[in-house]
Design a protein around this nucleic acid. Structure first.
Lengths: 219, 219
DNA sequence: TAGGATTTGTGCGTATGTATT
DNA sequence: TAATACATACGCACAAATCCT
């Protein structure tokens, strides 16, 4: 079985939680993450938390300064734009490097995402939209067997996830939801045609469009 | 100035040293890296070393098992092949995503690498070749301003650096050196023409050829 | 400028897990 | 199976750095 050691399980859980809080802006840029406060909250000592914060620092989500604190990093628009450029290219590669065969199970998952997206259209919620986008992104990377491509894509996703949430309030939430739903619909169509490359190209195109919308807000 | 805190400087130094030892096969796969032994060697306690080992684990170079040790990871040929596939694509992207203008200084550096390569032809040395390859790789990634692309490329480089060293003994060292020198020569020519995309394409092509040579050994 | 409050970094003793005898 | 040896994981006390008064 895929038993995990207790320590590793806790590490992964804490890392996921903190990363989620950062990416959903529960901890906006500049927030100080106190080791002692978090240790108290999670019922551990500082030591395991320091391991988690170290990884978040490696991932570029916090910076740790001796005598100051663990500070959630700021979002540099220029760097975010360049990171999106790379994410766009990686999204296309998912269809070309070791793509998985499209199974009925995959199509069912895509169909499920579309249902959830349609539900969000009825009852728009930026936080739920961000969460669905995150889960859908993982689904997208699961369509390649190239482990390195998956890892890099996800790493970059979490580094840029926040910028979308900060910009969307300036856009129209309903519009953004509709755009996302149309992506889900296009993606499902491509997968139903058993065309993984087309599905990847659709995600690639939508990243391009997302970049354009964010640039429009900036300008 | 770019002052670094003492702790961070030490962390980076230890991380570089251990990563180098792993990638140059001073620590072959399966080696156990004892926290206490390393702490004694570097004159620290185990705590800072655990931070370094944690990062090496995040990078996929070691796995840490409670009660067992920090073990240098094994090299899975299939995963290495897929990682090389991605490295090849990223090498091409360096020429397209935020490429730096080619300056005389850059050309001078490339010229210096060629000189060092030629010196290695006179006196072949697999270890020196591996080291020059590493420095040249960093030079290659410095030709893009896209930070994420640089980071991902380097991360993947260190993950695959070992497979080349394990395969080369089965190839001909002089031949491999000559191939590398020809890459340096082609790269210099492209840069002298101020064509960064051509330089990136050359690196991309050489990664393809390297994959082919390694596959030939395997078969 | 100096000093105290607060934070992260370090060192070490102990708990916990693993492998071997 | 149990006991022993030895490894990493953890918690805590203290050192070092920073900030504010």
């Amino acid at each position: 079985m895929s038993e995990q050691s207790d320590a590793r399980t806790r590490f992964l859980r804490l890392h996921d939680m903190l990363r989620m809080r950062i990416c959903l802006l529960d901890y906006p840029p500049g927030t100080r993450l106190s080791e002692e406060a978090l240790a108290t909250e999670f019922g551990t000592s500082r030591t395991p938390l320091r391991r988690v914060l170290a990884r978040l620092e490696d991932e570029g989500l916090v910076v740790s300064q001796h005598g100051v604190g663990n500070i959630v990093t700021d979002i540099d628009p220029g760097e975010m734009a360049r990171t999106y450029d790379l994410r766009r290219e990686l999204a296309g590669l998912v269809g070309r490097l070791s793509p998985v065969p499209i199974t009925d199970e995959i199509i069912a998952k895509a169909s499920g995402f579309l249902d959830q997206g349609l539900a969000l259209l009825e009852q728009p919620d930026i936080r739920a939209l961000a969460h669905l986008n995150m889960v859908y992104f993982h689904f997208g990377t699961s369509l390649t067997l190239n482990e390195a491509l998956r890892e890099m894509s996800e790493r970059l996703y979490y580094r840029t996830a926040r910028i979308w949430l900060t910009v969307t309030p300036h856009l129209n939430l309903v519009d953004e939801t509709a755009i996302f739903v149309s992506e889900l619909r296009d993606s499902l169509s491509a997968l139903q045609a058993r065309d993984g490359q087309a599905a990847a190209d659709i995600r690639r195109a939508h990243i391009s469009l997302c970049i354009a919308r964010m640039n429009a807000v900036k300008g």
